[in-house]
């Protein structure tokens, strides 16, 4: 069986190397992907239509907003599934086994001080990444992951209870749902005002500025929703994995 797998890998590798010769050059402006009129439209018209310099975020949150909304739902569903599989309510003795002891019980001075200094900076940077996501690289997913990672760092440095003081389980689920609610809310608001679902241009009736500014501001709002969900689900996954679903003693 191992030989068979090896042969399959070799043949696939040869085929891939053969196909690689037909690829366009890297960054070739005449390549099919760059020549297609839809991508031409994105590249040339994004700034005039949305006043957003980062066209990646513009495509993700505006032109392909429907995709991104359900990507957020995918993350939410993954978090709920992990809670459903791992979370243990009450104390069942058959699931008890030896807790792994990775850290000393007493908080270490160096670790503690470093985290005390680092965590506010990490959280500030995460907020910057979310808020500035449509002007520079970043956005809701990255900012949310960084914000969730700051709570994971707190849980690793101290213990799970300290981190859960800030993000208890009920708040995690509320945040995760609120994120999707914000995202879908922008879509429904556009629908109510007479536009299409997630057509941010119509939101100019509610938001200051012209149509382009409304699209830019709606992108920011949508990114904030994504960040809520991702932050909550990242911390929820970590705390379930680390405490074996008991939410008591983490790593």
């Amino acid at each position: 069986m191992k030989i068979l797998g090896f042969i399959a890998v070799i043949i696939t590798g040869i085929l891939l190397l053969q196909a690689e010769r037909d690829f366009p050059d890297w960054g070739d402006p005449a390549s099919p992907a760059n020549n297609y009129r839809l991508s031409q439209h994105y590249i040339t018209q994004t700034f005039t239509e949305t006043t957003v310099p980062n066209m990646v975020t513009a495509v993700l949150a505006d032109y392909r907003g429907y995709d991104t909304m359900f990507e957020t739902v995918v993350i939410f569903t993954a978090g709920i599934a992990i809670i459903g599989i791992l979370r243990v309510f009450g104390s069942s003795s058959q699931l008890e086994h030896k807790e792994p002891t990775l850290t000393a019980k007493k908080p270490d001075l160096i670790v503690d001080t470093t985290c005390r200094l680092l965590i506010p900076i990490i959280q500030l940077f995460a907020l910057y990444v979310v808020a500035h996501g449509h002007h520079s690289p970043g956005g809701g997913f990255q900012g949310g992951v960084i914000f969730g990672a700051s709570f994971i760092l707190l849980a690793l440095a101290r213990n799970l209870q300290t981190a859960q003081k800030w993000l208890p389980e009920s708040r995690v689920l509320t945040l995760a749902g609120a994120g999707i609610f914000i995202y879908a809310g922008f879509g429904v608001a556009a629908l109510v005002l007479g536009g299409d679902f997630l057509d941010y241009g119509i939101l100019t009736k509610l938001l200051p500025g012209g149509v382009e500014d409304a699209r830019s501001h709606s992108m920011l709002g949508v990114e904030i929703g994504v960040a809520f969900t991702v932050t909550a689900i990242m911390f929820s996954i970590y705390s379930n994995l680390a405490s074996n679903g008991k939410m008591k003693e983490g790593i």
Partner: peptide, 22 residues
């Protein structure tokens, strides 16, 4: 850069922590 950012945050950061805790 956007993909690199995601890879650094998700791939190198959080998923490594998830794997280790698993």
């Amino acid at each position: 850069v956007d993909v690199a950012f995601t890879e650094a945050a998700v791939g190198a950061g959080v998923s490594a922590v998830f794997l280790i805790s698993t």
